[in-house]
């Protein structure tokens, strides 16, 4: 009986992806960030596990305040992933490296795929490191206050998904605005200024439900498994994940289109 064979990765894709990976590991921040995030995760999760309370089914945060550190660690990892994605794409223009990259990888589809794929993988690593650190903190200091069950697994999974999506969003914006700083400002401005304003306006207009389609709401909804059930701003967990993936695909597609159709 013939065994099915795995599809071979084309050499061109493999080369482009290796180059993108080396771009990350060639700078100090690239290889220092994962252990730093693990340490941050461990510290904040340990602190909240020591001071917080256990699961509160009737409270907003159903996993209990002892897990606040975990959420913080995920937030930091998601932020780092978004910035990492923006830098991966924007730095190419900042230091005029995109010309060279495009020369070595003439197929712009492969170029984008390698960049977005490696950024997504690196984002996954960042989130995983932060979550492993946080999990160790919870295990060490929160065995009596934290409920280790499927809900917590959902939080971990949501964090990984959010980091990957924001890594891709960062790449898409970095390619669109051709600057890491502008891309980061755009993301921060949206999340901390525009989206809260839209929340307020939508609530005032009596259409608070529409904000569940926004990326900030979708991110919180993806991670906050079962928490804030009464909030009109957050979609259900599964829907949040889908909405967030759609935002990542849209931002990535916009960056891909721009890379394909415009001069370098």
């Amino acid at each position: 009986m013939m065994l099915p064979t795995l599809p071979t990765v084309p050499a061109e894709v493999n080369r482009a992806a290796t180059a993108e990976l080396r771009k990350i590991t060639a700078v100090r921040s690239g290889w220092m960030l994962p252990p730093v995030l693990a340490a941050v995760g461990f510290v904040v999760a340990s602190a909240s596990a020591l001071r917080g309370s256990g699961p509160q089914p009737r409270e907003a945060l159903v996993t209990g305040t002892a897990t606040v550190g975990l959420y913080l660690a995920i937030a930091v990892a998601v932020g780092a992933a978004a910035i990492g994605g923006a830098v991966a794409a924007g730095d190419e223009y900042r230091y005029r490296g995109m010309d060279l990259t495009a020369l070595f990888t003439p197929d712009r589809n492969v170029l984008f795929g390698a960049k977005a794929g490696v950024a997504a993988a690196y984002s996954l690593v960042l989130a995983a490191c932060a979550e492993i650190g946080a999990a160790l903190g919870l295990l060490a200091f929160g065995r009596h206050t934290v409920e280790f069950g499927w809900r917590l697994v959902g939080v971990f999974g949501g964090g990984l998904l959010a980091a990957v999506c924001w890594g891709v969003i960062g790449v898409g914006l970095g390619l669109l605005v051709r600057s890491p700083n502008l891309a980061v400002i755009a993301m921060a401005g949206w999340l901390f200024i525009l989206e809260p304003l839209i929340w307020l306006v939508a609530k005032g207009a009596g259409i608070a439900g529409v904000v569940v389609l926004l990326p900030g709401s979708a991110t919180i909804g993806s991670v906050a498994v079962g928490s804030f059930p009464e909030s009109p701003f957050l979609p259900p967990n599964a829907a949040s994940a889908v909405v967030l993936v759609i935002w990542a695909v849209a931002a990535g597609a916009a960056g891909w289109w721009y890379l394909r159709t415009r001069d370098i």
Binding site: A11, R15, A16, T18, A19, L21, R22, K23, A26, V27, R28, D91, Y95, R96, G97, M98, D99, L100, T101, F104, T105
Partner: peptide, 22 residues
């Protein structure tokens, strides 16, 4: 515009595009 990343070492800069060139 040479396209060199200031934070990479000389060798790392070359290795990035060595990977791209295979």
């Amino acid at each position: 515009q040479r396209g060199l990343h200031p934070a990479r070492t000389v060798r790392a800069q070359l290795r990035v595009y060595a990977a791209a060139a295979g």
